[in-house]
C-alpha cells in the first residue's frame, strides 16, 4: 500500500520540466495533483522510474480572461481554485457547474485541471466539459508549441495525443456565444463517486428561437469523452421543444455512444441514463437560454 521507489525531480520552470521529459521520456511520469497517479502508485499498478513533480512551477497556475471573451487556465490550476473563481463562474458556467461533481473536497484541494485532461479518464467530468465547450489545449515539446482541439485530443482509454516528451500547458475556453446557455448533470451512486453517466449540454438560440447551435457531450459511456454528433445534427435548426429534445436525446443514446457494462450498470441502463440525462440537460440549457 505504498509506492515503489522512484527518482524524483521538482523543476521550477516549464523549460526545466521539458528538458527532463526530453531526457527521460517514456520512463518518466508527470506528477500534477497526483489524485489519480498516487493511488495507482500506492497499489503498484503504476511504478514509474522517474517522477517529474510540476507543483513547484507557479507559472502554470493561473485563470485569466482572453481578449476574445474566453478564459485561459494554466494546467496546474487546482480544481478548488477554479471552483471558487468568479471569472470561471462568469465566463465558463458549465465548468463551474461540473466542478463540484468531481470527487470530494480533499481531492479538489489538490487535483488539477490539466492533470484531469492529460489523464483522460473516460469517467472524468472535465474532458467531457471541454469537448462540449470546444476548448483547445496548448501542448509543448522542446520549444515547439501546438494547439489541439479537445475533441481530437482524447483518442482512447486514458490515451491522448500527448507525446511522451510533451507537456500540456494550458486549457483555453472559447467565449460563449450570445443567447447560449449550458447545463451539466450526472448520476453517481454517491456524490463524488465516478458517474455511471454524465452529460454536458449547451444551446444557442437564434432570433426566431430556434437552436442556432447545440453542444452535447457524455462521460462514462465508452473509452473517451464523446461529442454526440448525431443528436446535435438532429436538434440544430429546430426550436428546443419537449418533442425535439426527446428525439435528439433518443438519437444520442442509440447512435452516438457505445457504453460498456460493468458491475455498476448494464449497457441498457447506461443508454437509458444517457437518454434521460441528455433530455434533462438540454431542457435546462434551453430554459436558461430563453430566460437569459
Amino acid at each position: 500500500m505504498k509506492p515503489a521507489p522512484f527518482e524524483y525531480h521538482a523543476p521550477a520552470t516549464v523549460e526545466q520540466a521539458l528538458e527532463l521529459l526530453a531526457t527521460h521520456g517514456y520512463d518518466a511520469k508527470i506528477l500534477a495533483g497526483g489524485q489519480s497517479l498516487i493511488p495507482t502508485m500506492n497499489f503498484r499498478l503504476a511504478q514509474p522510474a522517474i517522477l517529474i513533480d510540476m507543483n513547484n512551477i507557479p507559472a502554470l497556475r493561473y485563470i485569466e480572461p482572453t481578449p476574445a471573451g474566453g478564459v485561459r487556465i494554466g494546467a496546474m490550476t487546482r480544481y478548488q481554485t477554479a471552483e471558487r473563481s468568479p471569472l470561471i463562474a462568469e465566463r465558463a458556467p458549465l465548468v463551474a457547474e461540473a466542478l463540484p461533481h468531481i470527487a470530494h473536497p480533499q481531492i479538489r484541494t489538490r487535483g488539477t485541471m490539466g492533470g484531469a485532461i492529460a489523464h483522460a479518464d473516460p469517467a472524468a467530468e472535465l474532458p467531457a466539459v471541454c469537448v462540449a465547450l470546444g476548448a483547445r489545449f496548448k501542448l509543448r515539446r522542446g520549444t515547439q508549441e501546438r494547439w489541439i482541439a479537445a475533441e481530437d485530443f482524447f483518442v482512447g482509454l486514458f490515451t491522448t495525443l500527448l507525446e511522451p516528451d510533451e507537456l500540456l500547458l494550458e486549457i483555453e475556453l472559447p467565449p460563449l456565444p450570445a443567447r447560449s446557455a449550458w447545463a451539466f448533470t450526472e448520476v453517481a451512486r454517491r456524490h463524488g463517486d465516478y458517474a455511471l453517466v454524465g452529460v454536458a449540454a449547451g444551446i444557442t438560440l437564434d432570433d426566431a428561437g430556434n437552436c442556432a447551435d447545440v453542444r452535447l457531450s457524455f462521460l462514462s459511456v465508452g473509452d473517451r469523452a464523446v461529442l454526440a454528433h448525431n443528436a446535435i445534427a438532429a436538434l440544430k435548426g429546430h426550436p428546443p421543444t419537449a418533442e425535439t429534445i426527446a428525439h435528439a436525446a433518443a438519437i444520442a443514446a442509440a447512435d452516438d455512444i457505445a457504453p460498456n457494462a460493468d458491475i455498476h450498470a448494464s449497457v441498457d441502463y447506461r443508454r437509458h441514463l444517457a437518454k434521460t440525462l441528455a433530455q434533462r440537460a438540454l431542457t435546462q440549457a434551453a430554459e436558461r437560454a430563453s430566460a437569459g
Binding site: 497526483g34 489524485q35 498516487i38 493511488p39 513533480d53 480533499q106 481531492i107 484541494t109 489538490r110
Partner: peptide, 8 residues
Amino acid sequence: PVNSCLVL
C-alpha cells in the same frame, strides 16, 4: 483538506 495518502 487533503488526503495525506495521496500527497508525497
